[in-house]
């Protein structure tokens, strides 16, 4: 702003007996938080033979998430961290390998420790993100509504006297919203949440780590194991395709390796229950060590 000319103008105005010039705006300068949803490196490039205990490789072929919205704030302080504008594309079905950007601008400087992510099944107003088609959306919405689909091919290099022969398994996982975490909260990396500074944008990466669905314990640092999925198919229809239904029919009590226990410490459940519980730990916040923890389905926890 050219203050000299404005001062001259105001001076002139005062000479002719005008009302005062409009006062300055005391509103604070604002900042921005930009979340970029991505897929983890293993979700993008696959799980290699060396990554798993059984030397089973996994290639992810289809990853679809039903995203609803994000929340930024401080619990108990509803006026903090409010943003200006449309915010970001909410209610969208997307492939995290193609990315999704959520920009929240016009936020007054503040510490916003409570960041949450809400997933959910698509509805009539859902839009399509990059890398998905309306058939993905319909598949999520049809039947028991779901908010995530993960499909992969596992390749197990079996050793035999005849040599090495690969055995493949198609893994088709559909996470219904009734039994799977939809709200992820308490996002933290080195610090909790985000910090808004004036005239600055904090770029935050949020990664979907599909590989965490193959942990052998409820932990993001547990070993990766795929063998139970082969066993579930063997226990089921042996068609080389394992579905969530087959995982639900395969009790954890039949797995004698790893630490396949549900969050309550029991093994009274199925492999399907276990994988759905692992879904709570599939969101990485800022770094691979950062995390947003999914709610326990039916607990009513808010993100």
């Amino acid at each position: 702003m050219k203050t000299r000319s404005m001062r001259a103008a105001c001076f002139f105005v005062s000479l002719v007996g005008a009302p005062a010039c409009v006062p300055p705006d005391e509103a604070e300068e604002t900042g921005s938080i930009e979340f970029t949803f991505e897929a983890s490196a293993r979700t993008r490039e696959g799980i290699s033979f060396d990554d798993t205990e059984e030397r089973i490789a996994v290639d992810f072929e289809r990853v679809v998430l039903g995203f609803k919205t994000m929340t930024i704030g401080k619990i108990g302080e509803p006026d903090l961290c409010a943003y200006r504008g449309r915010g970001a594309a909410s209610d969208v079905v997307f492939d995290p390998r193609k990315g999704l950007v959520q920009s929240f601008n016009g936020i007054q400087p503040a510490d916003c420790p409570d960041v949450g992510i809400i997933f959910g099944p698509p509805g009539a107003r859902t839009t399509l993100g990059e890398g998905v088609s309306s058939s993905d959306l319909v598949e999520l919405a049809t039947g028991r509504p779901a908010h995530a689909i993960v499909e992969a091919t596992a390749t197990w290099m079996l050793q035999s006297s005849a040599g090495t022969r690969p055995r493949t398994l198609a893994i088709k996982l559909r996470f219904d919203s009734e039994r799977t975490a939809t709200r992820f909260a308490g996002c933290r990396a080195a610090a909790r949440g985000v910090r808004v500074l004036p005239n600055a944008r904090d770029a935050v990466t949020v990664r979907f780590a599909a590989e965490n669905l193959f942990r052998d314990a409820i932990s993001t640092s547990a070993d990766l194991r795929v063998r139970p999925f082969f066993e579930a198919d063997e226990s089921g229809d042996r068609d080389g395709v394992v579905t969530m239904a087959e995982l639900d029919d395969y009790p954890l009590s039949r797995i004698f390796y790893g630490f396949y226990q549900l969050p309550d410490g029991t093994r009274r459940g199925s492999l399907g229950d276990f994988v759905r519980a692992l879904f709570r730990f599939t969101i990485q916040f800022r770094t691979e060590e950062g995390i947003c923890v999914g709610n326990e389905p039916g607990s009513g926890e808010e993100g």
């Binding site: 702003m1 000319s5 604002t30 449309r86 601008n105 005239n199 600055a200 944008r201």
Partner: peptide, 18 residues
């Protein structure tokens, strides 16, 4: 006309609006 302008700050609104 000598126009002076304080545009939206770099992150004051949606990027396209800015």
């Amino acid at each position: 006309d000598h126009y002076g302008g304080d545009a939206l700050g770099p992150f004051a609104d949606d990027d396209d609006v800015v």
